[in-house]
């Protein structure tokens, strides 16, 4: 293990936690200073995690994609980067409140797993693995952010129906903004999700002589893709927007979580090496 790995992991976790607390403080108080420092902590967390993953890559001599510990760490990093991208495109501090708990949960779970660097099994030694996992990180990270934005939409929608909404509701983005942001994030992620399937199929063809084996992991990846394809078609052609769209974004992320973790933990298959 690289000497930088453990401290950068711990400090990244701390930075994300501080960022979450500061986003919370901003939502309650409206203090812009808290929002600025929350963003700074988020940037610091992502930077520290970039350092952490780089250190692990150097120590392992390969990209850190091989087991659940590495996968969770990189999922957390991808989600944090996607959250930053959303913040950069449109100021939505409230998104930190729903997305950062996912980042912290992923890192917290990773910290309970064996972090030893293991040699790659022969089936994983392929350049396709890099493209396959990189696409998955971006897709899953963006879907996580979209799910978080969907939760914000549902929260704001329910608060607006109260006779006396709490004052902090005004610090949530407008429903229209949340709806558009959720859609844009899913539209960004969807081609990457398709790329996950495409690169996986081409890789399987190279390694095993078959594109598709109906392995539970690849089947659930297909189900995730079909779900979001349905979302995009429904939104584009049947005007499913607003509340229904937000629910779909949240349910979609639950499907992603099942594909990412549930399948590994509950079903066995070709991707079972990713369970630990």
């Amino acid at each position: 293990m690289h000497p930088l790995e453990a401290p950068t992991f711990q400090f990244a976790f701390l930075a994300y936690f501080i960022s979450l607390a500061l986003f919370g403080a901003y939502m309650l108080s409206g203090a812009r200073l808290a929002e600025r420092w929350a963003l700074a902590a988020l940037v610091a967390g992502a930077a520290l995690q970039t350092l952490n993953l780089t250190a692990r890559t150097l120590a392992a001599g390969r990209a850190p994609f091989s087991n659940l510990y590495e996968s969770l760490a990189i999922f957390a990093w991808g989600t944090a980067v996607c959250l930053l991208a959303v913040q950069w495109s449109r100021r939505t501090p409230a998104a930190g409140l729903t997305v950062l708990p996912l980042v912290l949960a992923a890192l917290g779970y990773a910290s309970t797993l064996d972090a030893r660097i293991e040699p790659l099994m022969p089936a994983l030694r392929s350049p396709w693995m890099f493209y396959h996992v990189a696409a998955a990180i971006l897709a899953y990270g963006a879907f996580a952010v979209a799910g978080g934005l969907g939760v914000l939409y549902l929260l704001r929608h329910s608060l607006e129906r109260r006779p006396t909404p709490p004052p902090w509701m005004e610090r949530l983005p407008d429903l229209g903004v949340l709806d558009t942001l959720t859609y844009s994030t899913i539209a960004f992620a969807f081609p990457f999700m398709v790329l996950v399937l495409v690169t996986g199929a081409v890789w399987a063809q190279k390694a095993w002589g078959t594109y598709w084996q109906w392995d539970p992991k690849e089947t659930w990846a297909l189900i995730t893709t079909l779900f979001y394809a349905g979302y995009l078609h429904a939104r584009q052609f049947t005007r499913w927007r607003g509340l229904r769209s937000a629910w779909l974004a949240v349910i979609g992320f639950l499907v992603v979580v099942f594909t990412y973790l549930g399948v590994n933990l509950l079903l066995s298959g070709l991707h079972s090496y990713a369970s630990g």
């Binding site: 109906w214 539970p216 659930w220 297909l222 079909l226 078609h233 052609f237 049947t238």
Partner: peptide, 25 residues
Amino acid sequence: GGARFAVVLLVVWALLASLGTILPQ
């Protein structure tokens, strides 16, 4: 060729595919 039919097919296909991961095959 409609989008509504596409959405229905996507949902049905996804449900059937998920059933295949639960039932022994």
